[in-house]
């Protein structure tokens, strides 16, 4: 571990933050530049690429048919998977998903699921037997910090870009017709991650800030400003006051980021 290097960096980052500055000259509550590009994978029903500074995420959405869960026979199924692809960082290794990629996928999934962003009732083909399954695959192409916010944003952008095949049911058989309709969406959750470094709260931590920060709090905020998912990460803690401050920051920043999505 390069602990001596990060300690020097920690001091530098802490001194800057005490002055309200950051390594890349952002303010404490500023996101890096965000670029969203939709529909670049023709084979996928929906796709989007998000650049958050140098962090780059590609999300592909595939829509297939499958069985509903027994407790929700009238609802389509949503699944999110995340791959920390080895091309994205020297610290990512090939192999089955580790706890970091599982956490990333589950945090992205929770934001979309709990805000009921996908109108799953409209994805039912035959109650209890056949529904549409929406596979959201998050592909991390370059890791420069804050994978959670970038992935959640890319997942939403890809879902808003997703087209479902038209279909009809003839003699109990599913027949795909010509043409497409957009995936039915009900809300637009935005996830905002607040990092804590030396008791200061910063938004959108970059890679080096992530290496020195105590802990993070990621909050998914819905169109109406309500909170729909939270995840604390990292080996530090938050005071109750910091949690309330982070929730205010998340609401403000989510409204700002939502304007970047088009629907």
């Amino acid at each position: 571990m390069s602990s001596s290097i990060t300690r020097v960096r920690l001091k530098q980052i802490e001194e800057l933050i005490a002055k309200g500055q950051r390594l890349d000259e952002r303010g404490l509550r500023d996101y890096r530049e965000i670029k969203i590009e939709q529909g670049l994978i023709e084979r996928a029903e929906g796709s989007a690429r998000v650049l958050l500074g140098k962090t780059e995420i590609l999300v592909g959405v595939k829509v297939e048919t499958g069985e509903p869960f027994p407790d929700t026979p009238n609802e389509g199924v949503q699944t999110v998977n995340a791959e920390l692809v080895p091309i994205a960082s020297p610290n990512f290794e090939p192999g089955p998903p580790d706890e970091n990629s599982i956490e990333l996928a589950r945090v992205v999934d929770r934001g979309i699921r709990e805000s009921k962003a996908i109108d799953t009732l409209k994805l039912c083909i035959e109650p209890g037997k056949k529904v549409f399954v929406v596979f959201v695959d998050v592909y991390v192409l370059n890791h420069d910090g804050n994978l959670i916010d970038a992935s959640a944003l890319a997942a939403m952008a890809a879902l808003l870009n997703t087209k479902m095949p038209n279909y009809e049911i003839k003699d109990g058989e599913l027949k795909i017709k010509q043409g497409y309709t957009p995936l039915p969406m009900k809300s637009h959750p935005i996830t905002v991650t607040v990092g804590k470094i030396n008791n200061s709260l910063i938004v959108d931590p970059g890679l080096e800030e992530e290496q020195v920060m105590d802990s993070r709090l990621s909050m998914a905020v819905n169109d109406d400003g309500n909170i729909c998912a939270i995840q604390k990460g990292g080996s530090g803690y938050f005071t109750p006051q910091q949690i309330l401050e982070a929730s205010k920051i998340a609401q403000e920043k989510a409204a700002e980021l939502r304007k970047k999505l088009e629907w």
Binding site: R110, R113, E114, S115, L217, N222, G225, N226, I227, C228, A229, I230, Q231, K232, Y237, F238, T239, P240, I243, S247, K248, Q251
Partner: peptide, 12 residues
């Protein structure tokens, strides 16, 4: 606070 998670919808 060393763990904080949430699912569902709550107003602030």
């Amino acid at each position: 606070v060393t763990l904080l998670q949430m699912d569902g919808i709550l107003t602030p």
